[in-house]
Amino acid sequence: MRVINNLTAQLEAFREEMLRDESVIMIGEDIGAHGGMTGETVGFLEQFGPERILSATLAESAQASFAVGAAMGGQRAIVDYMCADFMAYAYDGIVNQAGKQRYFSAGQWEYPVVFIAPHGVGMRIAGQHETSVEGWFQNCAGLKIYTPMYPSDVKGLLKYAIRENDPVVFLMPRFSSTKGEVPDLDVEHIIEPGKASIVKEGKDVTIVTYQHGIELSLEAAKTLEAEGISCEIMDLRTLIPFDKKGILDAVKKTGRLVVVTEAPKRGGFGNNIINLVAEEGFSSLKAPMRYVGGKDYPIPYGPGEDFVVPTIEEIVTAVKSIM
């Protein structure tokens, strides 16, 4: 095992899949000579050439449509967006073209496209660069949504996504410097979607979350542990598909559920978890469920973002309210 950061994990997944399969191509702004916005494609232009590393103009919708056409022609396309918010410009290509056309063709066409972008808060660069966008896509049939947090999951899920025959919205964690253990380069590292991981074991309450919510929940758990409350924290890792059995088993174990998402509660993905447990795990509950989500405002510039996303204190309060 090695310790690497999320950026290295992303770069390794791209490179390994491009070496493995010559049909994999990339398109995005500044991914050629500049090596990507964060360095995720450094050296790729020289290694794979301009036929596979396609630097695009500032036209996100054209990139999405091009990728869909390339996929129809037998390529596996990766669209590398600078920011998840910019997927709004490409919504038609992602949703109406990539997401729906395989169904409309009765499965005759495959659409192996990965739409990847950094996602969520942390850089303090305001609401047109830090929106949590999973809610935009969760109700769009035909799309899968991956939301890893740590390097092992970034690499393993990204490699799986590139091999998928369905379109994947791959939301990278905002902090590319986050480090963690990843198998050595000579080990084939693939993670299947729909399988959550337990970040922290506990017995009194289950906290289901993903990405930034994991770090907040871990800090809240420290405070709660000091008061004798043991929290189990589950990282979903992927939202579509998500680990229904794992969630139901965890709630059966603890009898209590708190859902934490950086995205606002209104239309937030956490409602799917609440609904699942209400319909299929209600008898396991010892107390009402709680949902701690972001506020229903655009992300402000600078430190103002701290007042819009969930806080550690809100998670602590939510857990105490059901004990």
Rank of each mutant, 00 (worst) to 15 (best):
V3K: 14
N5Q: 07
N5E: 10
N6M: 07
R15C: 04
E17S: 04
E17N: 11
M18T: 03
M26Q: 09
G28N: 09
G28A: 04
G32S: 02
T38Q: 11
T38I: 10
E40Y: 11
E40D: 06
V42D: 14
L45V: 07
Q47C: 08
E51G: 13
L54M: 12
L54C: 04
S55F: 12
A56H: 09
E60P: 06
A62E: 08
Q63I: 03
S65Q: 10
A77F: 11
V79T: 03
D80N: 13
C83E: 13
A84F: 06
D85Q: 09
M87R: 03
Y91E: 00
I94M: 04
V95F: 01
N96E: 01
Q101F: 15
Y103H: 00
F104P: 00
S105G: 07
A106S: 14
G107H: 01
G107Y: 08
P112K: 01
V114S: 03
I116V: 11
G122T: 08
A126E: 12
H129I: 07
E130K: 07
E130Q: 15
T131S: 15
V133Q: 01
E134S: 05
F137A: 05
N139S: 12
C140D: 01
C140V: 00
G142V: 04
I145S: 02
M149A: 14
P151Y: 12
D153H: 14
V154W: 13
V154E: 07
L157W: 03
L158G: 04
I162M: 08
N165L: 13
D166T: 11
P167S: 04
P173R: 10
R174L: 09
F175I: 01
T178W: 15
K179S: 15
P183N: 00
D184S: 12
P193H: 04
P193S: 07
V199M: 10
E201P: 06
G202E: 00
D204F: 00
T206R: 02
T209W: 08
Y210K: 00
Y210T: 00
Q211L: 04
H212Y: 13
G213F: 10
A220K: 02
K222L: 11
T223A: 12
A226W: 02
S230Y: 11
M234W: 09
M234G: 08
T238L: 01
I240Q: 10
D243Q: 07
K244A: 10
K253R: 08
T254G: 01
L257M: 00
V258E: 03
T261R: 10
E262A: 10
R266A: 09
G268C: 01
I273N: 12
V277I: 01
V277K: 06
E279F: 15
S284Y: 13
A287L: 03
P288I: 14
R290K: 14
V292P: 01
G293N: 10
G293Y: 13
G294V: 01
K295H: 08
K295R: 09
P298Q: 07
I299D: 06
P300F: 09
G304I: 02
G304R: 01
D306V: 11
F307G: 00
I315Y: 13
I315E: 03
V316F: 03
A318Q: 15
A318C: 08
S321M: 05
